[in-house]
Design a protein around this nucleic acid. Structure first.
Length: 284
DNA sequence: ACCCAGGTGAGGG
DNA sequence: CCCTCACCTGGG
């Protein structure tokens, strides 16, 4: 039995789930498959809204609705983004992205794993973790896990970071709800005290889980995008990139980041396909 | 056999 | 702050 979640007109489930915020949704022929509130769920965007399979209770549906951020005022947000002449050109290709409201713990774990890693392996590692612990591991489960068990999840050198983060949280040395109540700068400072959490990971968690819209995670792709489109192709430090973002986008920096990221990656993969094709043609 | 990948931490200006 | 370097490991 399926139910429907109504969505704001611009909302695009495909783009929201595949713009690098969450790693545990699989996309096949227009349907997203994943786990929500511990249950297998299928999502498909149709005319009436998002068709949900696998959830019955109203409370869980409401939570899913909140998680997917289907109520974000995207018309207003995108109107404001279009005041920027670069984003005005990009938005036709990226419209409909919403910033999700993920669980801070799960988001934190995901992005600690993401450091110096690639997306397929991040997904693989998260899958392994969930399989080994029978669902997404709690801080206590991860803190108590043996090194050997963590190693078998392909965590590599990140394993000790994750153990220590989990230990601090389960010991009450780090309170996950504190960044939520703090303003951006203070929340960021708190997250940066955790091992394996640098500027980029902190900003991802602040943006994707704590709703701090001014966060602007600078990864290699976003760095490349800002250098190419805002700094005349000249290389810049991370600090400079963040200054540009704050000055131009302010409290919408996070949304700007999502559109830049999504677009440059989409473009990048198109170029790779093209290059691959011509290489095949020339080597034949 | 190599090379790369959504950074971070340590060490030294 | 800025710079440099090493880094688990699966998949090209």
């Amino acid at each position: 039995m399926a139910t429907f979640i109504p969505v704001s007109p611009l909302y695009r489930l495909d783009r929201t789930l595949s713009c690098g915020q969450a790693f545990r949704w699989r996309w096949e022929d227009g349907t997203a498959t994943g786990i929500f509130a511990g249950r297998p769920v299928k999502l498909k965007q149709e005319r009436r809204g998002i068709r949900v399979e696998g959830l019955q209770e109203q409370a869980r549906l409401t939570a899913l609705q909140h998680y997917l951020a289907v109520d974000e005022p995207l018309e207003i947000i995108e109107d404001r983004l279009r005041r920027d002449r670069i984003l005005r050109r990009i938005l036709p290709h990226t419209t409909g992205i919403a910033l999700m409201r993920q669980d801070p713990w799960e988001c934190l774990v995901s992005f600690v794993i993401s450091a110096f890693n690639n997306i397929p392996k991040i997904e693989l590692t998260l899958e392994r973790l969930c399989r080994r612990f029978g669902g997404f591991p709690s801080p206590g489960a991860l803190a108590g896990a043996r090194a050997r068990d963590l190693r078998s999840c392909f965590l590599g050198y990140r394993a000790p970071y994750l153990s220590e983060v989990a230990r601090r949280i389960s010991a009450g040395e780090f309170i996950l709800s504190e960044p939520a109540d703090a303003p951006y700068k203070e929340a960021r400072r708190l997250l940066l005290t955790l091992p394996g959490v640098g500027h980029k990971v902190a900003d991802c968690v602040l943006l994707f889980a704590y709703g701090k819209g001014e966060a602007f995670p600078v990864d290699v792709w976003v760095k490349r995008a800002v250098e190419r489109w805002y700094l005349g192709g000249r290389p810049a430090t991370e600090k400079r990139i963040r200054e540009v973002a704050r000055a131009r986008f302010g409290s919408l920096a996070g949304y700007a980041q999502q559109h830049l990221y999504y677009y440059i990656r989409k473009q990048g993969s198109a170029e790779t396909r093209k290059r691959g094709k011509t290489e095949r043609e020339t080597t034949q």
